[in-house]
Nucleic acid binder design. Structure first.
Lengths: 154, 154
DNA sequence: CACAGATCTCGGCTTAACTTGAAGTCGCCG
DNA sequence: CGGCGACTTCAAGTTAAGCCGAGATCTGTG
């Protein structure tokens, strides 16, 4: 096995993290990660970037946008090792986020089951139509959906 | 209260569904919904479009793409009322999807909790870093993440 | 030192899901 | 029947999260 290198090139980081070089540059551009430069202007990453990348990718996996992630990471003290309190705060935020998403999914799944049972599309007032709002209009089918576009998944 | 109109204009559908007119035209373009036309070429929607829209929006809410939705809807008999078997099939597909997403979220949330407990970022081998793969590299922080880009959320 | 292979920047392409704007037409109330 | 608001199409713009290629430069190894 090779010795542990102090700093990693973009290719090495890419290979170890599974994140493409292009994406790495992109993340840097967005302020999610950072790197030093050689005299020849090539990026040299500290090993800690791998932790950060794992974090970023994992968060992305559950549907958080890079902006969400970036915002969250920004609450951590820039540069220095975050305190436990910092992390707790961040985690709490995300847990709320995650819980909301899980709830939404559970609710929908259950409702979908109901719909199968009830025939759904020919039903007058399937619960599915009123997932999160209460503006049931008059007559069959008429409802006021909350514009989901704004809230994303939750 | 007004009388129930037989057919709805795009504006009425928009107001009742919370979906903008442009989005409605867009959905039509994508084959998700359809409408008849007046002699003057304006869209007139059957009330059932509201059910369909609620369905579409709800599915979107849980992260399904319009293409997913469109594919699913396409399995239903074009035009006529779907049979219960049709619905069952569709629902089964989506339930698998939903379950997968719920699982992923639960796993992550739990791991995030662990991380708070353990100090995470200063940890050598936090579970977070090995969410779904097993290629733990040598030394702290070195891992091979599965390219999440391909699988999306699940 | 030479050179192959890794990186660099930059601009443009991609997909999804719409939105915005322009220029013109409908429909219905008074 | 006049007019104004609702509607039409079409083209182009937007955001997210990158990918791709070109042309130039760096780095490390023999």
């Amino acid at each position: 096995m090779a010795k542990l290198p102090e700093m990693l090139s973009i290719g090495q980081v890419s290979e170890r993290s599974g994140v493409t070089p292009t994406a790495l540059r992109f993340y840097e551009d967005r302020g999610l990660i950072s790197a030093e430069r050689t005299t020849g202007n090539q990026r040299r990453y500290a090993r800690s970037v791998l932790r950060r990348l794992a974090f970023i990718r994992t968060a992305q996996r559950v549907g958080l946008s890079l902006e969400d992630i970036s915002t969250a990471l920004a609450t951590l003290p820039k540069g220095r090792t975050p305190t436990k309190a910092d992390w707790t705060r961040l985690a709490r935020t995300w847990q709320g986020e995650l819980n909301a998403r899980i709830d939404a999914l559970n609710r929908l799944r259950d409702k979908l089951s109901n719909c199968v049972g009830c025939g759904c599309l020919s039903l007058r007032a399937c619960e599915l139509y009123n997932t999160d709002d209460h503006l049931v209009g008059y007559g069959p089918g008429a409802v006021k959906l909350r514009p989901a576009a704004e809230g994303g998944i939750d």
